[in-house]
Design a binder for these strands. Structure first.
Length: 593
RNA sequence: CGGGAUGUAGCGCAGUUUGGUAGCGCACUUCGUUCGGGACGAAGGGGCCGCAGGUUCAAAUCCUGUCAUCCCGACCA
């Protein structure tokens, strides 16, 4: 391809709305253009990158025996109603774009395809003999993100590979899950990415085991926790650890006493000369449930620990038996809005009386009470006395017993690991580019997708689902592969492998030699670009660095001696070589990388 | 949705305080010089100053409303 024909438009200044390097570089180097919030056009260079990634993904998935398909993006609401996800995905903070057709039928624009694929599998697979089967597709997905951000990192339309597997039993699911894990590792390593697989929460999609693949990057949106020995890695949402030990509190005074007014843990600690691990703090939240009930929740947790809302939501779902649509803190404004008297914020204890809820306009009139293990495991503690500026030292008996106990805390950097207490957790940021789940029978049951087993019984499929954010992966790669001069693609996913730069277009020798080398490399099967623009050499070098082609062949002042310069973009090193050697040299370098 | 900011040429910005003919750099077009790290000179083209109302002799500028975009939180491949 010729640069003069490439519609290449590079920008010298950084577009003001791009924050992180990868997003700025994609815009500056002419890979993408924003069309609307979270919606981008992939320009020709970008499309080549996406195609290269796609090819790697296809090769690796095909090698596992997975089958490629293409499913509709427009999906009828009734399918989603059968799985019970229509409400959650469209109401409130739901992320599904949805619309009505001319007959008034409701449709959604696919954010994911469990419903469609499961009902198809139910139609097509009748016997255990057809199992296991893995289907995948690569296409645009739509999610009305609350806040699209960072270019392709979190966009509202994006390219995703999603795969779904169907099994007669759980062990078959597990073995495919393991195979997918291996395929994912091969895919990411072939794409030149440094990734970590972490234990993850399965989130809205639901299910049992689940792993995320994170590209380690400073600008990542996710926080991950790792152990030094490489044996443990988890998303913070899911991470477990051993909390630091609480300092025992011996004396006990059930009578309440005055405390300082600001209600902060630090103030309480310094005024009473106690440690924050000797306090039980209370977090008040309201959970909006799928049946529109609004459940007030009291969470008790040790003063030195933080609440992990994802763990809390998962517990609420288990104990209330309903999906949680929204969870938010209770504020004085919300209390007033319910027509209730104000509560003594800053001095609330785990036993705050349900009476404070009586007469609420919309809320349920009793609290759901749950406590983190760090709270239920300590004997004596300081907590609020449910009266303004009053606290007390007491134990759970004084409060009428130990509440429901669960792991609700955020694991933190420095905590000891569960698998080995001598290991400490380290924090690091990452970009999630892949996620695999063992779904079990959740969708096959709700959608009535079943087959006849070897024993002749009707059985719901065991399912797995496996995603890779293709467009996100491309951008994440830039986060790991760039420098001040621009992008520096790994050869495997670079839009072109080599760029031939003719330094001086007026020089006939250079011009002819450049064209000749371009043809030769093309014939040798190398993906090559030639910069034949009537620009000064400096401009071409800057652009070549910016768009990040791994190898640059400069046909310049040494052309008369039959030599060209070969420049390695990632190492930023160049060497003079004889033109006869160029093809072999390049072929060697490309296959080595 | 809550908090903050910004909308002026394709991109980056000034001008708004104090109302008076819309500017700069890059990019673009033509000509000349230059030609290995974003050259120089000359001449040019390109604007519903986000949109709608209002105040005024006069609005990019003041007032009201509205829309959009970006940043910080909840969502996720």
């Amino acid at each position: 391809m010729r640069v003069s024909r490439l519609m290449l438009v590079t920008l010298r200044s950084i577009p003001a709305d791009a924050e992180i390097p990868s997003h700025q570089l994609l815009l500056r180097a002419g890979y993408i253009r924003r069309v609307s919030a979270g919606i981008y056009a992939y320009l020709p260079l970008m499309w080549k990158v996406l195609q290269k990634i796609t090819r790697i993904v296809q090769q690796e998935l095909d090698s596992t025996g997975a089958l490629q398909t293409l499913l509709p993006q427009l999906q009828p609401s009734d399918l989603w109603e059968r799985s019970g996800r229509w409400q959650g995905y469209t109401a409130g903070e739901g992320i599904m774009f949805h619309l009505k057709d001319r007959q008034g039928r409701e449709l959604g624009l696919g954010p994911t395809h469990e419903e469609v694929i499961t009902s198809l599998a139910g139609d097509l697979i009748c016997s255990y003999r057809q199992l296991p089967i893995t289907l995948y597709q690569i296409q645009s997905k739509f999610r009305d993100e609350i806040r699209p951000r960072f270019g392709l990192m979190r966009s509202r339309e994006f390219i995703m590979k999603d795969a779904y597997s169907f099994h007669a039993d759980e062990s078959s699911l597990k073995s495919t899950y393991t195979e997918m894990d291996a395929a994912y590792r091969r895919i990411f390593s072939r794409c030149g990415l440094d990734t970590v697989a972490v234990d993850a929460d399965s989130g809205a999609i639901g299910g049992a085991a689940s792993q995320e693949y994170m590209v380690k990057a400073e600008n990542g949106e996710d926080l991950i926790l790792l152990s030094n020995d490489g044996k443990y890695a988890a998303n913070q949402e899911k991470a477990i650890s051993i909390p630091p030990k609480a300092i025992p509190l011996l004396e006990k005074k059930p009578d309440s006493f005055e405390t300082e007014k600001d209600g902060r843990i630090e103030t309480l600690c310094s005024s009473l000369s106690i440690d924050s691990s000797q306090i039980i703090k209370v977090i008040l939240l309201i959970a909006e449930l799928e049946d529109n009930q609004i459940q007030p929740v009291i969470v008790s947790i040790r003063g030195d620990q933080d609440l992990n809302e994802v763990k809390l939501i998962n517990n609420l779902i288990i104990h209330l038996g309903k999906a949680v649509i929204d969870l938010s803190l209770i504020t004085p404004e919300k209390i007033s809005a319910q027509g209730l008297q104000q509560w003594p914020f800053g001095a609330i204890g785990p036993d705050l009386n349900d009476m404070c809820l009586s007469g609420a306009k919309k809320w349920k009139e009793d609290f759901f009470r749950i406590a983190d293990k760090t709270a239920t495991e300590i004997k004596n503690f300081v907590c609020g006395a449910n009266e303004k500026n009053k606290h007390r030292i007491c134990n759970w008996n004084d409060l009428g017993g130990i509440p429901l106990s669960a792991d609700l805390r955020k694991a933190q950097e420095g905590d000891s690991c569960v698998h080995d207490q001598t290991q400490k957790l380290i924090e690091c940021r990452g970009i999630e580019i892949g996620h695999i789940f063992q779904l079990g029978t959740k969708y096959s049951q709700s959608l009535g997708a079943s087959f006849t087993s070897e024993e002749g019984k009707e059985q719901s499929f065991f399912m797995g689902c496996y995603g890779i954010g293709i467009s996100r992966l491309a951008q994440a790669s830039i986060e790991q592969h760039h420098d001040e001069a621009g992008i520096s693609w790994p050869v495997s996913i670079a839009p072109y492998e080599v760029i031939v730069v003719i330094a001086n277009m007026q020089d006939q020798i250079q011009n002819q030699l450049g064209e000749k080398l371009y043809q030769e490399l093309k014939e040798a099967g190398i993906d090559v670009l030639i910069d034949d623009r009537k620009e000064r050499a400096g401009v071409k070098f800057k652009d070549a660095d910016l768009i990040g082609i791994p190898w640059r062949v400069v046909v310049g002042r040494d052309a008369q001696e039959g030599k060209v310069e070969l420049f390695d973009r990632s190492k930023r090193q160049s060497k003079l070589i004889l033109i006869e050697d160029l093809r072999n040299e390049l072929a060697g370098e490309i296959s080595a990388s």
